[in-house]
Design a protein around this nucleic acid. Structure first.
Lengths: 243, 243
DNA sequence: AGGGTTATTATGTGCAGACATAAAAATCCC
DNA sequence: GGGATTTTTATGTCTGCACATAATAACCCT
């Protein structure tokens, strides 16, 4: 009697097998519908396992996922409670310029406007937390969609961290793609603001008084600075994030 | 002999116990350092378990995490391979306006500029995928940091989905906070662009020709439209994302 | 009553073993 | 040779069980 193993759950519950993802969904639903009130404790894993007719580990997997997503807060012995005001996150898939433009149905091309090894201006030094006397590669690239200017990228690359880029042919692979393929990063910051086109107007084919989106991104690999990029997008363009 | 249970790993490996998070970190490191080449297959779970001196389930937990993060791609029978060009994501903690301003060290306050039940303009109907004849609440709120204009929020709320807001006192809890507490959402879109201040200049205390960041957000709960918000930030402000 | 020690409890993580599932590889049959 | 079928293999998931860890709750002693 009951010596059978591995025939999944569905003893107490009257339904299909669920599984940990199913349990996660049910619990998420209970949080949203306030079956579990904001800020309140929910039953412990053992009780939930009994309710769902599964092992505690299965419940644990589901709850850990919801905790990681910010909807539950778990503390040993204290139990698991519903976060009252979850701080929700929007995620931006960082666009590979070529892919972003081709996804728009346009033909991608780019022009390397500047390529020089130069001492970084103070703002760049500060943003990357550089030491004195670091040598950087400075590249300015214009990216076009169907031959229409789409974005100008002004980028500084730390040669001490990524020496190989000095020998790379950046007229074949643009700096953006070269770095994605050859310089993984472990940390970074990204900032997104509005500015007048100003001096970029010429490249972007708009007037100096047009408003453009500016994205600044800095990356490091285990603390070693890699690159700082400032991207000016053409006036019409906006970033789409997913909630 | 060997009837002892639950004394953790560290047989084959010469080191400390690791654990699944440790294994995840080691594997992440091997990916970054190209010990596993981009696009290549990595050893299967059984072999890795042997290498790390742990159970297969422990390796599985680690690899699933890396797959969810987009660094590995796993397919049954085919095995696990390193994603060649991982599409990395930046995440934006959606700011609760009050908290965002107080984190800046400023005193938060707000003024409700408009509050009316009105038929939505076509663009709002389209953005929320509304049916004809839906009643919406339209609120315009000015948020201030130390009494200086920080952001103007122009918001439409679908009364059929969130009827309770019609009776809410939005001069106590601003619409932003009220919705966070009372209207959970399951899906949404968010868009971020630059625009000239234009008609918002008066509220924001800048000129009509200044560039401002505009964030548009729409949310639904299981397909039912909740709200559309358009936020115009003061010229200096930018969004900071985490990589 | 107060303060320190001990028990209790919920989560965190681990293990071995089993079966499920998908997909590639090998095989068979016409 | 080509198409359909079977085998093999790697991942996906679940079950029980055990111990680790952290933090609250209970206790005890002065």
């Amino acid at each position: 009697m009951n010596s059978d193993t591995a025939q999944p759950q569905a003893e107490a519950a009257g339904g299909p097998p669920l599984g940990w993802q199913g349990i996660r969904d049910v619990m998420m639903d209970r949080i949203r519908t306030r079956h579990y009130a904001p800020g309140a404790l929910i039953p412990n894993e053992t009780d939930l396992a009994a309710e769902f007719g599964c092992a505690r580990a299965t419940v644990n997997r589901a709850l850990q996922e919801l905790a990681a997503a910010g909807f539950l807060e778990r503390r040993r012995k204290a139990g698991t409670r519903v976060v009252a005001e979850p701080r929700r996150k929007a995620t931006l898939e960082i666009p590979l310029i070529r892919a972003a433009i081709e996804d728009l149905g346009a033909a991608y091309s780019f022009r390397l406007l500047t390529r020089e090894v130069a001492p970084p201006p103070p703002e760049v030094r500060a943003a990357l937390r550089l030491e004195d006397g670091a040598r950087l590669l400075h590249v300015v690239t214009l990216h076009l969609a169907d031959a229409v200017p789409h974005m100008v990228e002004d980028r500084w690359v730390v040669l001490a961290t990524v020496p190989a880029i000095e020998a790379a042919d950046l007229t074949r692979d643009n700096p953006n793609e070269w770095l994605v393929r050859n310089a993984p990063y472990s940390e970074g910051t990204m900032r997104c603001r509005a500015a007048l086109a100003g001096a970029m107007a010429g490249h972007l084919g708009c007037t100096a008084r047009d408003a453009v989106l500016v994205v600044e991104r800095a990356t490091w690999l285990d603390g070693a600075p890699i690159t700082l990029a400032r991207q000016h997008y053409a006036p019409a363009y906006g970033l789409t994030l997913a909630l």
